[in-house]
């Protein structure tokens, strides 16, 4: 078979680094493997493979697919507990989740596209730690906790530190809980509104900025940090457009 000489074709054909593979059978094995230098977890692999083009060269790939405890969604009166390996397609179609928090299930179903949704996981979306990925913003509005084998963190904390193995995402439940995600201006700006009998939160984000939580009462987004601007939008624009999205979201939740 004809093969072009190395260098004549782009490195897009096989960009995978020569990495060892650990098919972890339990959480302890995965944690130990991930503690090794150069190790990377593999959930769906959809972001990791793209990372190879960007120069990522892990020396050990840790396959999480055998960790059944990282699958499934459990719903109690207190909270919704989502396994890190739940895919976007599974999560957004889960009957229990659709009944408990339909706005969040609908928002989850909007992420990415059909080719990605069936493989990509909630855990991978968070742990890829790209501001253009939206799950962190949704979870910020929901006041969710991220459960790692090593302890708990908030979505905001994960931007700064990279703990080991994410096992679950926990969303607290509240009386009268409602959620809506306003995505029409993506990638410039998106905003999620989470309201319940005891209060709630909004979260705003852009393709380039970490999501920021906002009080629902802050209709003019006055508390938006001074630094909330990127090379596409100014803080002024974020406040104007964000305030409109917040008002629209609140209206939609009233009508729901």
């Amino acid at each position: 078979m004809f093969r072009a000489a190395h260098g004549l074709i782009a490195t897009t054909v096989n960009t995978a680094p020569r990495a060892a593979l650990c098919r972890a059978c339990d959480v302890a094995e995965a944690v130990a493997a991930l503690a090794q230098p150069g190790a990377a977890a593999v959930a769906g692999g959809t972001d990791l493979c793209a990372g190879f083009n960007a120069g990522l060269t892990p020396s050990l790939l840790v396959d999480l697919s055998r960790l059944e405890v990282l699958r499934g969604i459990e719903i109690t009166t207190e909270d919704i507990r989502i396994g890190a390996l739940v895919t976007h397609a599974q999560g957004s179609r889960d009957q229990g989740l659709r009944a408990a928090l339909p706005g969040f299930a609908a928002a989850w179903g909007m992420l990415a596209n059909p080719r990605i949704r069936h493989r990509a996981t909630i855990g991978g979306n968070i742990m890829a730690r790209h501001t253009r990925y939206e799950m962190s913003l949704l979870l910020t509005a929901l006041g969710a906790r991220l459960v790692f084998a090593e302890g708990e963190q908030t979505p905001a904390q994960v931007w700064n530190a990279a703990p080991g193995l994410l096992t679950h995402i926990v969303i607290p439940r509240h009386a009268g809980q409602r959620f809506i995600y306003m995505r029409g201006l993506r990638p410039q700006l998106t905003l999620a509104v989470h309201r319940h009998a005891g209060g709630g939160l909004a979260a705003i984000g852009t393709e380039w900025l970490h999501p920021v939580a906002l009080a629902l009462a802050d209709a003019g987004l006055e508390e938006l940090p001074e630094t909330f601007a990127d090379h596409v939008i100014s803080r002024w624009y974020a406040r104007r457009a964000g305030a409109a999205l917040l008002a629209r979201g609140m209206e939609a939740l009233d009508a729901a």
Binding site: T12, V13, T15, A16, L21, R23, V42, G45, T46, L48, C49, A50, F52, N53, L61, D63, S65, A89, P114, R115, I116, H118, R119
Partner: peptide, 29 residues
Amino acid sequence: VACSRAVCGACTVLVDGLPAASCAMFLWQ
């Protein structure tokens, strides 16, 4: 294979009936 980052869709295959970007999957999967 075109983009090699799951963006263009040229490498789409079905895995157990579901669409997947085969450039962004490993053989063992």
